[in-house]
């Protein structure tokens, strides 16, 4: 039995066909195709400037997709950015329910903040939160919307190693409870292998590698198979093994 599959995964798959994005002469995404299974957890790796953020923004609906592309996207979608992007003039709980109808907002905010372990910080200003707390509030803001598509763009890059470990556990936990189709952009190969069912490498404007991660959860660096996967991904990313070692 698959222990780590989310509790429910009944919604539509994500399908992208023929997505091309150009900035002037620079073709960042080149007729890209992508499929994500409902409720799956996928990591997206790629060199800096390979177009990960560009792809994520299109999936989030932040950038208009060109009309020749075909997109079937689960909705609602929620995004966690690299920075928390909380409105400093709204209390934490108000940030969490920003844009939602006010009926029952307070209760929903409290519930989401409790889930990310921030119930005691509901009524403070965002400026008083630590980096990890602010990012957890951003996660709560994403989850309170019950998204079917959860997009994370290097959400833990700015956090220290210990906080990051805690956040990994939290994200997995939330994913298991809520079951959104999840795509996380990361620079960190270990993070990708720790979290995801499937790791994609973006290169040359397309998905250049698609690797399933068949390790049981919870995962640890010492697990058999972890090192091999890690090596394989580093090769895909063009990192010389001698350098990496």
């Amino acid at each position: 039995m698959d222990m780590h599959a989310p509790a429910f995964a009944t919604h539509d798959p994500l399908r992208v066909r023929n997505l091309t994005r150009r900035f002037g002469e620079n073709t960042v995404l080149d007729a890209l195709n992508l499929d994500l299974a409902p409720g799956s957890f996928t990591a997206l790796l790629g060199r800096s400037g390979s177009g990960k953020t560009t792809l994520l923004r299109t999936l989030a609906g932040l950038d208009e997709a060109p009309h020749e592309a075909r997109l079937d996207l689960p909705r609602p979608a929620a995004v966690v950015f690299q920075e928390p992007r909380l409105l400093p003039w709204k209390k934490v709980w108000q940030n969490v329910v920003l844009g939602l109808p006010s009926a029952g907002a307070r209760r929903r905010a409290a519930q989401a903040l409790t889930e990310v372990g921030l119930d005691h910080r509901q009524d403070v200003w965002p400026a008083t939160l630590s980096g990890g707390e602010a990012q957890r509030a951003a996660l709560a803001r994403a989850l309170v919307r019950e998204p079917r598509l959860l997009l994370l763009d290097e959400p833990f890059a700015a956090l220290d190693a210990l906080t990051r470990i805690r956040m990994h556990a939290l994200v997995l936990d939330l994913w298991r409870h809520h079951g959104p189709t999840t795509l996380i952009v990361t620079h960190d190969v270990d993070e990708a292998v720790l979290l995801a069912d499937r790791v994609l490498v973006l290169d040359g404007g397309r998905i250049a590698a698609d690797i399933a991660v068949d390790l049981p959860r919870p995962r640890a660096h010492a697990d058999a198979g972890f090192a091999a996967l890690r090596r394989r991904l580093l090769t895909e990313l063009g990192v010389d093994q001698q350098e990496a070692a």
């Binding site: 950015f81 992007r85 844009g99």
Partner: peptide, 20 residues
């Protein structure tokens, strides 16, 4: 960046002006 985040989370133009 704040305006963009607010837009992802469903604020329309009026909400953006008022809240952001």
């Amino acid at each position: 960046k704040l305006a963009e985040a607010a837009r992802v989370f469903g604020l329309d133009r009026r909400g953006l002006i008022r809240h952001v």
